[in-house]
Design a protein around this nucleic acid. Sequence first.
DNA 1: ATTCGCAAAGTTTTT
DNA 2: CTTTGCGAAT
Length: 774
Amino acid sequence: MDVNPPHADDTLLASLTDAQREAVEHMEGPLLILAGPGSGKTRVVTHRIAHLIRQGVPSRNILGLTFTNKAADEMRQRLARLVPGQPPWMGTFHGFCSRLLRRHGPLVGLAENFSILDTTDSRRMLKNAIKEAGITLTHTSLDAIRDEISWAKSRLMLPDDYQPRLGQMVGDLTREIYPVYRRLLLETNSVDFDDLLLHVGTLLSDSESVREELDQRFRYILVDEYQDTNMVQYAIVQKLSMTHRNLAATGDPDQSIYGWRGADVSNILRFEEDYPEVKVVRLERNYRSSKCILRVADALIEHNQHRKHKELYTRNDEGQPVRLVRYMTGHDEADDVANQVAAAVASGDRQYRDFAIFYRVNALSRALEHALRRLQIPYQVVRGLEFYQRKEVRDLLAYLQLLNNPRNDVAFQRIINMPPRGIGKKSLEHLERHARRHRISFFDAAGEVGLIESLTRRASVSITKFVAIISGIAADPDQDLAELVARVATESGYREFLGEKEESLDEDRLANIDELISAAREFDEMFPDEGLERFLEQTALVADIDKLDPDPDQVTLMTLHAAKGLEFPTVFIVGVEAGLLPHERSRDDEMQCEEERRLLFVGITRAEQELQLSYTRRRMMRGTHRTAIASEFLLELPRGEMEMIEPPGEADYPEGLAVSADNFIDGGPADRFDGIDDPHPASENLDRDSLVENLSARLTTAAAMARDGLEPSTGGMAPEDYSEGMLVEHPRYGPGRVMELSGKGPKRTATIKFFSGEEKKFRLAFAPLAAIVE
DNA sequence: ATTCGCAAAGTTTTT
DNA sequence: CTTTGCGAAT
């Protein structure tokens, strides 16, 4: 059978637009595809690969790099439909680098059976490093150091090159700890996520022969989501396309949402400088969303100052207006969203799978899950790591890690006394000291307990038993993976340990262990030749989104970050509130704020036909509830053409005290605390929130309001206008009373006692406070 | 050494 | 509200 009928390529090309075809037919030389949301980017990329293959390029010479396994899988599948046969290498950056390191690890000091530490394990390792360096952290958190090291690594900085970020107190500590951390990683034959990339980066600069070989091998490279690459990824890709400059990058600067992880948008902007002969293709026509939705998205993103203008358009229908809804509480929000889903499905217009609900932080999923469950609506939360985060699963995996790489001290630490076998902190410390002194791994130290005099007899015996268990399991190299996991569960005593206790919790745990065994079996069946190493690699490198199952008819819940690359007929974005989106921690930084705006942009552009944005007036967070305020981003939307809704009936008011929407505007029960005079009674309800919120005195908000013809009313209050006893409201702490005033001008400070009981001091010139008119 | 209990802390986004 | 971590009791 001819897998390449001569006409196939023509048909393939015929279904594309001019711009798309231009990209698809491009063969030699660098290519930059700037693809707006919903512009058929994946289609173009897969078709281009298919085209390359049809033109005779062997698929082994093609490399496709994505950010998630899901994206890679999808491309692989779509490609398989176009050109059957051996697919090219498609995978994540991290997966690709891991595979390279298995082969070339020795060049950077790693044995091929190195372990990949996830966030938790690397934290543990860092703890060891800090201890080893003889440092006790006082005013700096472990995570601050971790972030700093991670940041340095993402900028290709080794300990010797390390330059602290300006004004970082952690800089000095990091300078001391980073070298030790790195040394421990190498000594234990382990890498963290950043290392996967960094080692490959240095490998490619240090070894010209390896670089050359790989450059030859991967003649055509495609990088997806290029706007989210960091400097290391940039360097890797660049090194691999020196001889063959066939680098194709696709991306959209407006969808760059991983700056916090070290991604550098300037990579995409620099592309044209690095490859002057680049062919740039712009895909601006949107095939996904209705006109209404696209206009909202466009209006929002136009507010980003650091951005090249881009014309997005669609020939899709006008569609329904985007809904902007205000709820009383997060509960009401969740209930109403669930009701809407149920109603649409009941009427036959929609299936569950047509809906997605997005939020900024995972914490918001709880209320939604609750509401959906109550209506018996099937749903899936894209938070796949959960299973691998379970204690019992992690414990068992640690056994496997140790079996695979006996130098993995972190794994050793985790399981040496799990299940409890009488080896406590003291014994472990003796063991550790011995290991450090002789520069051997914990496991090797455990093998020579006879030499450690400080250990008690009891501990020595236990440790020796432990070593015997591990060695016993390791002795049989032929066992398949499922068998191996099962043996570990049994022979480690873990199963028995859980079985003894008769608690339902432990039954769950036993079930999880069995599930891990099934996962191992599944892996065996799918990749019979891949070993333990690959199984562990796979468990370490899964992302949340990878667990998304497109098959079942379920509503999908996920963070905005996870939503990238997906599309749904109906989208709800909840919690569009100040402090949440943009997130509090981005508030003070203009660049970060723009990233938050892009995040909302990404969310909006996932919607095909219907979109609802919502916010609440009060939201329960970490036990207590706080007054919520509409996000400043909502002021940037074309509200005139949107549908503004406030559902009546607020569950938390006593029956009989039904409150109509109008009452809220005029100061119904709910407005007890924020009865500010509304100078624009005729304007949309949102404006009243904006009055409270403009207090936060963000420039963007002020600008937005100026455009909307709104006067900031209370926000402009001078520090001298405050008086003791005055009622004020703070966007974060809610209402409170001014207790004390001191200072003058910009230094004027107020002590405010909030109704929550908290007492805080504020510099009035800067504090986002609003006076409440009594 | 283990276990239990309480207190504190801390909560963005993820490979 | 939940989880993590630490300290005291057994």
